[in-house]
Design a protein around this nucleic acid. Structure first.
Length: 188
DNA sequence: ATTGGGATCGTCT
DNA sequence: GACGATCCCAATA
């Protein structure tokens, strides 16, 4: 599956692995939502044996998508005002996902700027809540199939994941803070 | 450059 | 009824 721009959509098999394996592989891939596209530069892994994960305490209406099959988008609402987007990995019933924490805008900058209130380009999508606001993602996008839906997908444009990603503990959690499951692409 | 507080509501206890 | 896988602005240095 390719198009004239040389971008190749990620197939199902890409997502059918454990989240700490998929997460660093997602760095430098391109998130595409309608007219907007951005290079993924920051991610975190979560899974059900992990106290910081939404799936740690079992299945609920909110986290149902995260319990599903890899390659779908899990979008949740938090802090009364933010959405966060995750890529579900592994297989049905496993409860694993990769949180998309940051992207560098590539296309559709006009849409992103408008949704982000005209803030400077460098802070359009440099955080999980900001990323969702910039790309216009909300709960209505929860469950989207990234492999089959052309409007919301992830593509490989030939840029490899960073050879030496920055690895750190995850951000904004209060438990399992010792696990180094956050990956960041070094600044260009 | 860094820090601290307020906003705001769906979800689970 | 409490609290978040957060963000933004104001204040300080």
């Amino acid at each position: 599956m390719s198009d004239t721009s040389g971008e190749v959509r990620l197939g199902r098999a890409f997502f059918e692995r454990d989240s700490p394996v998929v997460a660093p592989e997602l760095l430098n891939k391109v998130l595409v939502v309608g007219e907007c596209a951005g290079r993924i530069v920051e991610v975190e892994a979560y899974r059900s044996d992990d106290p910081a994960s939404h799936t740690f305490r079992g299945r609920t209406a909110r986290n149902a998508t995260m319990w599903g099959h890899g390659g779908h988008l899990y979008v949740y609402f938090t802090y009364g005002m933010h959405f966060c987007a995750n890529v579900v990995t592994s297989i049905e019933g496993d409860g694993q996902a990769v949180l998309l924490r940051g992207a560098v805008p590539l296309r559709g900058l006009e849409f992103m700027r408008r949704r982000r209130g005209g803030r400077p380009d460098r802070i359009l999508a440099d955080g999980p809540g900001k990323l969702c606001q910039a790309f216009g993602l909300d709960r209505s996008d929860d469950g989207t199939d990234l492999v089959r839906d052309p409007a919301v997908t992830i593509v490989d444009d030939g840029i490899l994941p960073p050879m030496a990603p920055i690895v750190t503990p995850r951000i904004g959690i209060r438990v399992a803070t010792d696990v180094p499951w956050r990956w960041v692409a070094p600044p260009a």
